[in-house]
């Protein structure tokens, strides 16, 4: 059974994205253990996909008025509202050969970790290509991936108690996108673990479920660890990039 590092933390959107990039960069060039990060965005924030136009995706004025930062990811995919009181983000930073060379297969394998985490709550999830996990027909997790030559970074969400009304207020979801999922509103398309279970699910319980879910999905032992000095240094330098308008509002 392989051993991976488990890093659990909370931080700003800028720091979280910087740390993901730092670990990806270092794991690509050094012989290091694969990593699972489980983290909280504090304060709540929006991340947008690398290829997205910010003003077509986010109610920017509303976000600013409400103090919600907007940060561009290095991964593709759509905009995400990371609710500090209702969402956990995971990152898998691993050798591509340990997951799958085929991109769709790698999404499926990593999302198995989410599916097992859902089982922890007695929920049956389903992986819906390209990058979603659905429960009772609604999205509870989305993922996004980028790759270097040898290493991949996939980060994604688990909405255990996200305030869905904030998604509706902060993000611009095209009607044809909702319609393609037979949904009229965000509430028809997206859900949370708490909503599906009818009881409030705690952050601690969601983190525990994710840890166990990924251990089962990859037959690994996750060993809680701290950042090393190189990771800290590089992340600190990259925070600047994710704080700049030139990056976040480039399109």
């Amino acid at each position: 059974m392989g051993r991976w590092r488990l890093l659990v933390s909370e931080g700003t959107a800028q720091y979280n994205m910087a740390l993901d990039e730092a670990i990806l960069t270092l794991n690509e060039v050094k012989e290091k253990l694969n990593v699972l990060r489980l983290y909280i965005f504090k304060p709540s924030a929006i991340t947008i996909g690398y290829f997205q136009k910010v003003y077509e995706t986010v109610n920017v004025d509303y976000a600013y008025k409400n103090g919600v930062p907007i940060v561009r990811r290095i991964t593709g995919g759509g905009a995400v509202f990371h609710d500090e009181n209702g969402e956990i983000t995971y990152s898998v930073i691993a050798k591509i050969g340990d997951i799958a060379f085929d991109i769709q297969e790698s999404y499926r394998k990593i999302c198995n970790g989410i599916l097992f985490a859902l089982n922890h709550f007695g929920l049956e999830g389903k992986f819906e290509p390209v990058n979603d996990v659905i429960v009772n027909g609604k999205k509870v997790s989305g993922s996004a991936q980028t790759r270097k030559v040898k290493t991949l970074l996939q980060h994604g969400t688990l909405m255990y108690n996200t305030d869905l009304s904030k998604i509706e207020q902060l993000l611009i979801v095209p009607k044809d996108k909702l319609a393609s999922h037979s949904a009229k509103t965000i509430y028809d398309r997206v859900t949370t673990l708490s909503r599906e279970k009818g009881v409030a699910i705690s952050r601690e319980n969601a983190i525990k479920a994710l840890k166990e879910g990924f251990e089962k999905a990859f037959s690994i032992n996750l060993v809680e660890d701290d950042l090393d000095e190189e990771e800290k240094d590089l992340a600190e330098r990259l925070v600047k990039k994710y704080s700049q308008r030139e990056w976040n509002f480039r399109w």
């Binding site: 290829f51 136009k53 077509e56 593709g76 995919g77 905009a79 980028t146």
Partner: peptide, 25 residues
């Protein structure tokens, strides 16, 4: 979404945006 700015049929600006994925970036 594809956006193009053309000057005398020369592409001066091109942007392909959306929530898709492309590897490597």
């Amino acid at each position: 979404k594809i956006e193009l700015d053309l000057d005398n049929d020369i592409i001066k600006k091109v942007l392909i945006s959306g929530d898709f994925f492309a590897y490597p970036i």
